[in-house]
């Protein structure tokens, strides 16, 4: 929102490293979750899960326990799992090794 910045033609928005990390973790896990969702639900029919849960009780379940609902939940679950893995990778890569911290 700062028109002054445009006076410098080469000024480019460079993201701070923390934001870059969030973007990389979020996006890479999104891609992984997309592929994962396809693989999982090609082999698994959500009807099987629905049949396991079905108590015959109407209500909120009819929203979650549909094929679309299970697909959606599955996608977000996979996204979460993949994001945890990606975030852990980032965290582990940042931990200084023993030779750097001066302790073994």
């Amino acid at each position: 929102m700062d028109p002054q910045a445009t006076d410098d033609p080469v000024a480019v928005r460079r993201w701070p490293s923390r934001l870059r990390m969030v973007a990389a973790v979020g996006w890479s896990s999104f891609l992984a979750a997309s592929i994962g969702t396809m693989l999982v639900f090609a082999a698994l029919d959500p009807e099987m899960i629905i049949a396991g849960f079905d108590s015959g009780e109407p209500g909120i379940q009819s929203f979650w326990l549909t094929r679309t609902g299970i697909y959606s939940l599955g996608f977000f679950l996979l996204w979460l799992v993949a994001a945890v893995a990606a975030a852990l990778t980032v965290a582990l890569m940042q931990t200084p090794g023993p030779e750097k911290s001066g302790q073994s």
Partner: peptide, 11 residues
């Protein structure tokens, strides 16, 4: 001739 200059805001 700026086509696409890239700054803190894009113009």
């Amino acid at each position: 001739v700026d086509l696409y200059a890239k700054h803190s805001k894009v113009y």
